[in-house]
């Protein structure tokens, strides 16, 4: 098979991988913030529910969660199964939102109490303190760990194949099995390298931009 033929056959896989990546990010970034608010809630039961949820999601394999989201509704409630790709994306969003929420929480908690108090004695409202004083400092602190998670997400997208979603690795594997050629695997490997490489460069740029001050 020629390079072009392989590329054409892999096209759907590329698209699926990019879609899982993109939609997960768009969904998990804000959902993570909601989970953070929940897990930092002053109402003990709410906090407890969110913390337990995060603990379960982070303590079990994403692969298991994907399988559960796909088969769970049918087997437990007799509901119609979700489309495969939708199930995958739901599992990814929930999983990554939990990881993001822990990073957000760490970032928020790392801001010294003195920053809040300085804002308070200067007559700022709670909202102003959050948006004008704290938020930027939090962002600066969480960009490096968020970067790591986002790059992990690029590679995690290949887990979608567990419920037979044909993402890039699955697509390549199919060609390898059918045509007995090995190089499509290296081809997709190079794609992942390039993708995560570009992200690294962008994230580094963001980090540098935020580094105009120390602390």
């Amino acid at each position: 098979m020629s390079f072009l033929e392989v590329t054409a056959q892999l096209a759907d896989g590329f698209l699926t991988t990019l879609m899982i990546f993109g939609i997960t990010l768009v969904g998990a970034l804000p959902l993570g913030l909601l989970i953070t608010l929940g897990s930092m809630s002053k109402v003990k039961p709410i906090k407890w529910v969110f913390k337990t949820f995060v603990w379960i999601i982070r303590g079990t394999p994403l692969m298991l969660q994907i399988i559960l989201v796909f088969f769970g509704p049918g087997l437990i409630f007799g509901a119609k199964a979700l489309p495969r790709l939708v199930a995958v994306i739901i599992a990814f969003i929930i999983n990554y939102a939990c990881y993001f929420s822990e990073i957000y929480r760490g970032g928020i908690e790392s801001i010294p109490k003195g920053q809040y108090e300085a804002g308070q004695v200067l007559g700022m409202t709670k909202t102003q303190i959050f948006f004008k004083v704290v938020l930027f400092q939090v962002i600066k602190r969480i960009v490096p760990p968020m970067g790591n998670e986002i790059i992990t997400l690029v590679k995690d997208t290949s887990l979608a194949r567990v419920i037979a979603v044909v993402e890039l690795v699955k697509a390549a594997e199919t060609i390898v099995a059918l045509k007995s050629i090995i190089w499509p695997l290296f081809y997709v490997g190079a794609f992942y390298l390039l993708f995560s490489g570009i992200l690294s460069v962008l994230l580094n740029l963001a980090e540098k931009k935020l580094n105009y001050y120390q602390g």
Binding site: P112, G114, E117, A118, Y213
Partner: peptide, 15 residues
């Protein structure tokens, strides 16, 4: 706002 407070550790806004 009737009172101002200067902290031991400054607490300036670093950004």
């Amino acid at each position: 706002l009737h009172f101002g407070l200067v902290f031991q550790s400054f607490n300036l806004f670093p950004q």
